[in-house]
Design a protein around this nucleic acid. Sequence first.
DNA 1: AATTAGCACTCGGTTGTCAAGAGTGCTAAC
DNA 2: GTTAGCACTCTTGACAACCGAGTGCTAATT
Lengths: 343, 343
Amino acid sequence: MILTGRKRKILEAIIGDYITTAEPVGSRTLAKNYNLGISPATIRNEMADLEEMGYLEQPHTSAGRIPSDKGYRVYVDEILMNRHAVRSGGEFFYLKGLNSGGIEKLLKEALKIISDLTEYTSIALTPHAAESTIKQLELLQFNENSVVVVLVTDSGTIKNTIIKLNSVISSKEIDILNLHLNRMLKGHSVEEINENIIKELKDSINLPVDIKWLVCVIKNLLVSETGTEVLVEGTTNFFKFPEYRDIDRVKTILSFIEDTRMILNLLMPFTNNDISITIGSENTFEEVKDCSIITVTYNIKGKNAGTISIIGPKRMNYERVITIMDDVGARLNRILTDYLYGK
Amino acid sequence: MILTGRKRKILEAIIGDYITTAEPVGSRTLAKNYNLGISPATIRNEMADLEEMGYLEQPHTSAGRIPSDKGYRVYVDEILMNRHAVRSGGEFFYLKGLNSGGIEKLLKEALKIISDLTEYTSIALTPHAAESTIKQLELLQFNENSVVVVLVTDSGTIKNTIIKLNSVISSKEIDILNLHLNRMLKGHSVEEINENIIKELKDSINLPVDIKWLVCVIKNLLVSETGTEVLVEGTTNFFKFPEYRDIDRVKTILSFIEDTRMILNLLMPFTNNDISITIGSENTFEEVKDCSIITVTYNIKGKNAGTISIIGPKRMNYERVITIMDDVGARLNRILTDYLYGK
DNA sequence: AATTAGCACTCGGTTGTCAAGAGTGCTAAC
DNA sequence: GTTAGCACTCTTGACAACCGAGTGCTAATT
């Protein structure tokens, strides 16, 4: 399935043109604007071949050609990736966030930059805190019968909740709980907290029964609170593209993106690759079958922790986006390393 | 500017019809579907009067009439409000959130319910934490040279951030800082923390200079972290209305709503009224001049703390929405009271 | 054998016209 | 004061005609 030099050049030109214009590309345009040294008629022949091979499509008989999903794929895989390997990422952006805010803020900032830069919508998944280990678990008194639980994990996630109790709790009791909770749980992951540990914990504390009960509540809370979160930025960017002039399309895509659970299903599979690119029909959900998605992962402790994606029309500026995403990924990793293990 | 019984009835019928159909209402429809006991011709005369008085508009000569902003206004003020005073809010929804999560989660939940119920977009402003007093300010060790700051205020807001230091900090030093910070700051509002307090605080602590410096960082952080936040739910509801079949309109309104600062400017003025209704041109920003906004406030300690709003087309089901919002407001107040001062 | 010029053909988009339908305003009759 | 009747206005949808962009094929050219 290898493309001859000329076919390749034509395919590249078509995709390049279509990316910027969003209009089907005809043989004449091609001959005029890209000095390929051949006439429209020849180009037409080649285009007919490329269509037969499945790289191009015709919206209707008398229109120019547009790239098929397969066409984009070969463009990304063969043409871009080779070129990209040589290029180095430019200094596109500046991420501050070095010394304030938790990881969500950092990600939000990165998303904002990406969306501004690429004009596409960006989505991040926060680290799944259940896998990361507990650094601090601190109870603070809120009221005579309610406490604030603060959970800090080694992946930089900070979660908090208020828990209301049935009975009054004293600051002394809170101190005792804090001591035991931290002694028993620090260094463990949320997943590892099983019934045994809970039981042991309860037994080791000398406190009224209904306050011991708090331990169970906290355990449940941790589990429910430590899920992956979805952050989104730049949804209105979709309005910038002519392919989304159609209101039903925008509606479909925006509704889909608004649905956190769907986004999780869509993006979780990519948490293991450094970079994933899915084009059109390669995506698993109907709602995004006319989109392309580029996902990179960021690491914590050298392990894949979460992802940053951009989603936009198939006619995407892959080259630019890949460069930017690579760059963001690298920076994010650097910042996170600095940030989580001293400088 | 008082309306005779018949004119009032006709206006009410027109608005009622237009709210459900989104189509200009003609005299015949009116005569057929609302037994007013008069013929289309008479209705036409009355409609001409109502138009002259400014309560109705005609999109074009040969269309039916639609309510003007002024028409909606009199409908809401005179017709609805009178009727509403008698009605009692139904048991529309169920707010859990009683014993877990901070105030943001509670608000998010309320928004979700409101958006599901009304099919409009809902927006909440969190309490402005700078005005509320500090309940707890706790530093937790994160790394040898970074700490987590957790701030709990009496309005139920919990904020946290990681601060990275230039030098190593010991857990003993953190304890000392905690002790002093809480002794000096607890019970004060963020606004009240001035230079004097900072200085006093610094002087009273016996720690290396660069750790004292942390106090300044915390002060700055508090100020920057305690702003009002904007929560939004159900943006895609706009797609449900025929008046937003126009892509440029949706684009305008969604972009506006995405812009947190704009929303703040728009809604801050309403923080003092129990309920505010602004219709079309009554709104301050061009982008929402074809929308109506209904805002209710929720209280903490009997003081207005934040707001919940819904935003939708002018052709809004005011009656239903007002009932729901009243209900949500009341419940929210009850829950917050329970929640923040024990039960 | 590959390339190119020429030409007929296709098809979507635009424009213009026309008729139908909904609704009004006015006048005259009740 | 109310209503029936009628002429008038304006929008909408359908249909036809036309234009232009682009193709595929064939025959001529290199």
